[in-house]
Design a protein around this nucleic acid. Sequence first.
DNA 1: ACGAATTAGTTAGCACACTAACTAAAACGC
DNA 2: GCGTTTTAGTTAGTGTGCTAACTAATTCGT
Lengths: 183, 183
Amino acid sequence: MSPKPKSSDPAEAAFRAFVRASGLFRNRMDPYFARYGISASQWGVLRALQRAENEGLDGLQLSVLGQRLLVRPPSVTTLIDRLERIGLVSRRPDREDQRAKQVALTPAGRELVARVLVKHPAEIRGIMGCLSEPEQREFQRLMERVAAHLETSIDSISPDPRNLRDPRDPRERRSAAAGDRRP
Amino acid sequence: MSPKPKSSDPAEAAFRAFVRASGLFRNRMDPYFARYGISASQWGVLRALQRAENEGLDGLQLSVLGQRLLVRPPSVTTLIDRLERIGLVSRRPDREDQRAKQVALTPAGRELVARVLVKHPAEIRGIMGCLSEPEQREFQRLMERVAAHLETSIDSISPDPRNLRDPRDPRERRSAAAGDRRP
DNA sequence: ACGAATTAGTTAGCACACTAACTAAAACGC
DNA sequence: GCGTTTTAGTTAGTGTGCTAACTAATTCGT
């Protein structure tokens, strides 16, 4: 074969590196949190609730949690179900909105968060420590740029997932060119 | 309390930006591939098989796919099960190893890959296009640095989880001095 | 004020990741 | 050669994500 430039496109190369790093990242974090008997997603919930406490709130609505964690309502429900079952959070009715519920840490949940937080800075540095401080800042800057762009291009979850009922989607309409797989 | 710098740690800020960008990224890619009736993971399989074809191979073992996609054997099995069920790939026995199987694209799979690849560069630029070319290259560099570091710290899946072979590797001649990237 | 639309949350059903435990074939080790 | 160990792949069971469809409460429009 002739000189076939395999990765001449910097965008694609960056894309691929991102995908790969994300996979490795997940493979690293999952066992880390498993040592505490929780999943990475569950940790996200606990941390969000702890931050809420630090801001003087005594709970968060499920919908707020979903927006923060970039997860849709049914996933939040099952996530909280399990955390409640293992006694780390509790659901309480929201006084001001009868259909909403406030989720808060239990004492056991608070204690687990504290226990994880002791080790957390070391774990984070164990991952990001391969970059110098200026590189870490650049890394952050580029990540936030991409994230901000994704946030505007797709309003995936952050604003509210269910208001996307606009039938006038200017984008490609359900290609269905050669073979339509799943109905 | 006094001035409590909440994010003075660049490592943690970078870490959080990475987590958030990964979530947004997933939320963007999932519906993209759904338009073709496949998942992002399934696309990973199809693309890997197409690359193998381009290198003259007529299939890949499940274990090789698992290493490339950073996924463990049971996940590969179910992934291939479904792709086989919808007729995009096929399993064939491996001539040289009776316990292994070769997975290859079917004509329908090949056709779908071609159809996706037409739109793929635009999709990638739609995501990475918010960065300039030099930024894309820097993004790639930092990602690969972090990935390489994760790869060595955890031998999660990439090298091969199950054969942590002993020091008598036949091709130990090379310059194993500094940073050896990928075998 | 009262019916329609929106919002909070759940349920049902599917896809995909994992670990643990299994079968079967290949590679070692003596 | 023959038994042990390793490797390829699958099965069973769990956790997390999704969409679609539902209930119940709130808000909006007139």
